[in-house]
């Protein structure tokens, strides 16, 4: 019996242990994505076509992608910048140590507080009847919309709203990286005559660059694919790529199913491209690592 079971153990291939995972990944991640790619190049009657992808070249769809890219770019950039400033203030800026742990916990919460409730929170704050809007109007007689042209249900409004989860995500990712900056590096640099700014430009930022790029790519993809917040803020008529796709899936507004695949394919290309760019840049920025 003992011999039999050891023989069986030898015959059981190692990959059987990871088979369920790969089966799952194949069926519910990889094949669905691939089916979109194939669908984008399939003619209605079967066979290869570029018509679907070419069909993206309309003012509406081009505009939707462009708004989406701008929206994601700015919310990622601002998210990175603000998150970095806050993390640097906490880690390096001499703030009381007691702030750090609550801030990280809160960031964990806020980075997961997205979707519809987030939209509701911002409507209640800077929407037409929101707390700040009303306060500005009653206390100072300022009409937010008339005075600044600000409208929550616009791209700018979306960017500001997305910051609520982009900033804490950046804080969560960059704080460990900032912790990794050794005090001796700064001290060695200043002993060699470097100013604080020179230290950041020549040492600290190059060291942080891989993390910064990675977080930017992640934040970009994060807001590029976000449907729920935009949907709740601006409704189905907002012309951004994910909402266009959402409407297409729901009701086939484009009148051509092949175009829907092309639309989704374009989204994969853009988020995938952002991440590929990140990987290439990171490989170059990380020459000095093991």
């Amino acid at each position: 019996m003992a011999d039999l079971s050891s023989v069986r153990r030898m015959l059981t291939p190692r990959w059987l242990g990871v088979a369920p995972f790969f089966l799952f990944a194949l069926m519910f991640l990889i094949l669905p994505a691939l089916s979109i790619v194939f669908g984008a190049f399939r003619a209605p009657g079967g066979g290869f076509t570029l018509d679907n992808v070419a069909g993206l070249n309309t003012p509406t769809i081009r505009g939707a992608y462009w708004v989406s890219i701008r929206l994601s770019f700015w919310s990622a950039l601002l998210g990175c910048a603000i998150g970095f400033a806050m993390a640097a203030a906490i880690v390096l800026g001499g703030l009381p140590r007691g702030i750090r742990s609550p801030m990280l916990t809160f960031s964990g919460v806020a980075s997961n507080f997205a979707g519809l409730p987030l939209a509701f929170a911002f409507i209640a704050t800077i929407g037409p009847a929101g707390l700040i809007t009303v306060w500005l109007r009653t206390e100072f007689g300022i009409n937010l919309r008339a005075a600044t042209g600000f409208n929550l249900f616009s791209t700018t409004g979306l960017i500001i709203t997305y910051l609520f989860f982009q900033v804490p995500l950046m804080i969560l990712i960059i704080t460990p990286a900032l912790d990794g900056l050794k005090r001796e590096w700064r001290e060695a640099a200043s002993m060699l005559g470097a100013t604080g700014w020179q230290y950041w430009r020549m040492v600290a930022l190059p060291i942080l660059l891989p993390s910064l790029l990675g977080t930017f790519a992640l934040l970009f993809a994060n807001s590029f694919g976000a449907v729920a917040t935009a949907f709740a803020l601006a409704g189905p008529q907002l012309n951004i790529a994910p909402i266009l796709l959402f409407s297409q899936i729901r009701g086939d507004v484009l009148g051509n199913p092949g175009l829907g695949y092309a639309l989704a394919f374009g989204m994969i290309v853009i988020t995938g491209g952002a991440n590929a760019a990140y990987l290439i840049l990171r490989a170059r920025a990380e020459r000095w690592q093991k």
Binding site: P32, L34, F224, A264
Partner: peptide, 10 residues
């Protein structure tokens, strides 16, 4: 990386 909306479309 792949938006949820694309996955569910698949």
């Amino acid at each position: 990386v792949i938006p949820a909306i694309v996955i569910v479309f698949g």
